[in-house]
Design a protein around this nucleic acid. Sequence first.
DNA 1: TTAAGTGCAAATAGTTTGCCAGAGT
DNA 2: ACTCTGGCAAACTATTTGCACTTAA
Lengths: 135, 135
Amino acid sequence: MTGGREGIRLRRSKQREVILEELRKLKTHPRSDELYTLVRQRLPHVSLGTVYRNLDRLQGEGTAVEIYCGDFVRYDGNVSPHDHFMCRVCRRVWDFDARHGDSPGVPAESENQAGFQVESQYTMFLGLCPDCAAS
Amino acid sequence: MTGGREGIRLRRSKQREVILEELRKLKTHPRSDELYTLVRQRLPHVSLGTVYRNLDRLQGEGTAVEIYCGDFVRYDGNVSPHDHFMCRVCRRVWDFDARHGDSPGVPAESENQAGFQVESQYTMFLGLCPDCAAS
DNA sequence: TTAAGTGCAAATAGTTTGCCAGAGT
DNA sequence: ACTCTGGCAAACTATTTGCACTTAA
């Protein structure tokens, strides 16, 4: 198993490479349009559609993570399990460490609840960021 | 403090009442259009805009909770802290109990991280629901 | 050579909003 | 009466998609 779908030979592309590089550079969990602006500085002719198509593919491969923020989606190049804080005012997202030593929040024991197969999980903390709390 | 904004005298309305009743009847965390369909069975002339306006208001008052599912928002009439499971295939959402006795997932100790004020939190579990796992 | 990937623009779809009529206090 | 609230439809905006052209392999 290579992980790809049957019968489809995947190719690399400069665009996808740059998109992933720029995403990984950031700690800010950018929106698609923010990433689009950055990528365009290196590839002036990329289209927003290409950014969306590749982000969708990266997340399908497990190389990027989508963070749903209500009005839009933010992207995270850090795939390792970690949690997020979202400011209810400016809607920006930060990494947030709230895990205890004994893996809290893990589904009750080993078995899944009533046949639900948990593949991943995340905790979202909501509140005010330092900037918005100050104003 | 009544919780309302200054200078605005809030009124009750039949529409909002019915919307909240229908929302609370459900365990299914409906989308706006699903709720719209239900409410229209009791109030045939409600508009989708009214449903949105009232759901927004209910969540602003803390009477309902928005669950971001990517393409759309789901609503939950259960305001008490609890977690959710979302099926990655059908995108439906269920309540999910994964909390331990010692309040896991709470931000590190009493103080907030670097000035971030946590007001609420939730954990989302992602995976396959029994229905989609079977197919 | 061949089909995956892209650029572009138009289309989609969930949600929001302006406006005026209607209703709660 | 005063003004919050709703109905309706148009507007908005993030995202998706069709199509012809490029390009990796």
